Simulated assay, not measured.
Amino acid sequence: MRSVKRLYARSMKKRRILWISLICVLLIITGCSQIRISTDSEWMMKMDESKLEKEEVRTIALTQSSLFQQFYVPLTGTEFWNQLIEENQTFESYAKDTIVFEEAAALTILNAIADSWELELTDSEKDLAKQAANEYFDIMSKEAKRYTGANRSDVTRLIQKYVRALDVIDLLAEDVNMEVSDNEMRVMDIQVIIFSDQATAQQVKAQVDAGADFLSMAKQYSITNTYEYSVRRGELAEALENIVFAMDSGTVTEVIPVGDEFYLIKCVNDYNETLSEENRSNIQQQRIYEMWMDTAEDFVLDRKLEINERSWNHLSLELNTEAQNTQLFDIIENYFPSILQSN
Rank of each mutant, 00 (worst) to 15 (best):
V4H: 12
K5I: 15
L7Y: 05
K13C: 03
V25Q: 13
Q34P: 03
Q34M: 06
I35D: 10
I37W: 10
M44S: 02
K46C: 09
I60S: 01
Q64Y: 12
S65F: 04
F68W: 12
Q69L: 11
Q69F: 02
V73T: 15
V73R: 14
V73H: 13
N82C: 05
Y94R: 14
Y94G: 05
A95M: 10
A104Y: 10
I113E: 01
E118A: 02
T122P: 01
E135S: 11
S141T: 10
R152E: 12
S153A: 01
Y162R: 03
A165K: 02
I169V: 05
I169Y: 07
A173S: 14
E174T: 00
E174G: 02
E179A: 00
N183T: 14
R186V: 03
V187M: 02
I190H: 06
I193P: 00
Q207D: 05
A212D: 14
L215F: 15
S216A: 11
Q220N: 06
E228D: 09
S230M: 06
R233M: 02
A237G: 03
A237Y: 11
A239R: 04
F245I: 01
V252N: 12
P257A: 06
I265R: 07
K266T: 00
C267F: 09
D270R: 13
R280T: 00
S281A: 10
I283W: 00
Q284P: 04
Q285P: 01
Q285A: 03
W292T: 00
A296M: 13
R303A: 07
R303Q: 13
R303L: 12
E306H: 09
R310I: 11
S316N: 14
L317E: 03
E318K: 14
T326I: 12
E333T: 10
E333Q: 15
Q341R: 14
